[in-house]
Amino acid sequence: MGRSGILFALAAGAAVAVGLGVYGRLHEPTFFAVNVAGFSSGLAAKAWLASGAVGLALVQLVTALAMYGRLPGVTAPSWAGPVHRWSGRLAVLLTVPVALHCLYALGFQYGQPRVLVHSLLGCLFYGTFVAKMLALTRPGAPRWSLPVLGGVLFTALVALWLTSSVWFFATTGLTF
């Protein structure tokens, strides 16, 4: 059960990652997407939403370390679990409008190293997210699976943020 469960979760995640990449490549970029109200431009909205997600991801990292007893001298408080779950949900929901704009308006691109890395990581992020959500529902999943998947998610999100939001803020300034 345990092994087949985690294999199923990983296979589903891989399928999602590849599917997103293929869609992004085949779908003709429209260079247009509905903007999020309240920001000067679509890119500024994306940059801030992604920054919010990264902030929540830091909460994810700390609560996860606490729950696994990896923070020296800290015993996980009872609220660590709920905070971990809800910050994660909020973080991934914040990324959805961003990713949709990427996929729908821009597509999978590989013209520059920054863009190629960003495109690949975007696919990896959602694939890993699906794998982690499915792994959570398999009680027999190996002990390493959640820390590894969570670590990949955190790393991918931070790298996605570095290759987009940080790049945006560095090139156009801190624009809202």
């Binding site: 997407a33 509905v34 779950r85 994660g88 959805v96 949709l100 699906v130």
Partner: peptide
């Protein structure tokens, strides 16, 4: 408790599909 991640997954799919529909309608 084990259903919660599936609900999270579904919420992400629903939000993504909703935004895609809005975009498709607007384009």
């Amino acid at each position: 408790k084990l259903r919660a991640p599936v609900v999270t997954l579904a919420a992400v799919v629903v939000l993504g599909a909703g935004l895609l529909a809005v975009n498709l309608a607007a384009t």
